[in-house]
């Protein structure tokens, strides 16, 4: 029998692609979080003997931001990240279209007690995240990096999070991210074929803890900045 389909064209292959791109995005999320945490370093920590010494959080954050946009290896990683995000979204759409087709006629009555709501609604959570990311990038990335209309990113961030509804949008995005991650991390490992029972039960546990920690840390930044 001829098996013509490429590595990423079968049902398993498409899920592999979701898993690989998803895990790469998670890797970025960690890096992004570390950078963001600079925003909440208390003033009492300064000056810090770093990069030849920084006086305050304003300088430190702007120096870090400048480094990101000017250091070329980061730019390459960024392009890979954009590609991963686009592939993740397009692949998700293709998978969803196929799944709808496979389902056919819908049940008159459904009982959802056999699975968690977030595992069933990765697409919805993903869409929320997608909208959030567009807003997020329009607010910072577009203004700072692409258009260059804003030069003091720290001030921009601070100003942004003084608006209460902006904080609210962020918190919603982060909650969506949390549930997307809890299921996504476990699911990605299973899709990639990690099958030993012990490993998978550890991964399940790690996925939960990691997602909660990430979400909490991400979530406190806008709140602290709002209150600052």
């Amino acid at each position: 029998m001829a098996v013509k389909k490429g590595l990423f064209k079968t049902s398993v292959g498409r899920k592999n692609l979701m898993a690989i791109t998803g895990l790469f995005i998670i890797f970025f999320l960690v890096i992004h979080l570390i950078g963001n945490l600079i925003l909440i370093i208390p003033n009492s920590f300064f000056p810090i003997e770093f990069w030849g010494g920084v006086e305050n959080v304003h300088d430190m954050y702007n120096a870090y931001s400048h480094f990101l946009v000017s250091f070329w290896p980061v730019t390459i990683v960024a392009w890979v990240l954009y590609a991963a995000m686009i592939i993740h979204v397009v692949d998700a759409l293709l998978i969803t279209i196929q799944n709808r087709k496979s389902r056919g006629e819908k049940y008159q009555v459904t009982d959802n007690s056999t699975s968690t709501w977030y595992s069933r609604n990765m697409g919805v959570l993903g869409t929320i995240l997608g909208v959030f990311i567009v807003l997020h990038m329009a607010q910072f990335w577009l203004k700072y990096k692409v258009l260059g209309t804003e030069h003091d990113l720290y001030e921009l961030v601070l100003a942004t999070f003084k608006v209460w509804w902006f904080v609210l949008i962020y918190e919603i995005g982060i909650i969506a991210m949390c549930f997307h991650l809890i299921h996504g991390i476990e699911s990605a490992h299973r899709s990639l074929g990690i099958y030993p029972k012990k490993v998978m039960s550890i991964i399940k546990y790690i996925a939960l803890c990691f997602s909660l920690v990430m979400a909490i840390l991400y979530a406190i930044i806008p709140i602290i900045l709002y209150l600052k």
Partner: peptide, 17 residues
């Protein structure tokens, strides 16, 4: 897996149901 796809079954989302 090829046959699975050709029969028109969907993709696994690992919901565990």
């Amino acid at each position: 897996i090829n046959a699975h796809d050709e029969e028109g079954f969907g993709n696994c989302s690992n919901t565990g149901a």
